[in-house]
């Protein structure tokens, strides 16, 4: 069972109280972008075994979207953070590095 702490209301939520929102930190390429960028944005997703960044929505609670960093293999949660950021904050990255030295995810490490 996956338990994530909602960064907005501070509640430790069971995954059944949440809605998964797919991969985090996607850059939207819309009209006017190149075909390659648009394809990347629309279809290409990470599917790692290990460190992953996701979007979740606290749907049975405060209703807010947030980000989570977790390990897809062990279900270990490294941290949850605000939805209003384009990349993971330093403390979350440090927490991952402490547990998984040398991790890589897209162009983050």
């Amino acid at each position: 069972m996956l338990i994530l702490k909602c960064p907005y209301c501070g509640v430790a939520c069971d995954e059944t109280e949440l809605h998964a929102g797919g991969e985090a930190h996607l850059t939207r390429h819309g009209p006017g972008s190149s075909d390659a960028d648009f394809e990347e944005y629309l279809f290409m997703r990470e599917n790692p075994r290990g460190v992953h960044f996701e979007r979740w929505r606290h749907v049975y609670g405060c209703g807010k979207w947030f980000h989570a960093a977790r390990d897809t293999a062990t279900l270990e949660v490294f941290g949850t953070y605000s939805a209003q950021v384009a990349e993971p904050p330093k403390d979350v990255r440090a927490a991952i590095t402490a547990k998984v030295p040398g991790w890589r995810w897209r162009d983050l490490s």
């Binding site: 209301c9 509640v11 939520c13 059944t16 109280e17 049975y60 609670g61 405060c62």
Partner: peptide
């Protein structure tokens, strides 16, 4: 605590 009870919020 906002949560769900069985299948409803």
């Amino acid at each position: 605590r906002r949560t769900r009870m069985a299948q409803v919020p």
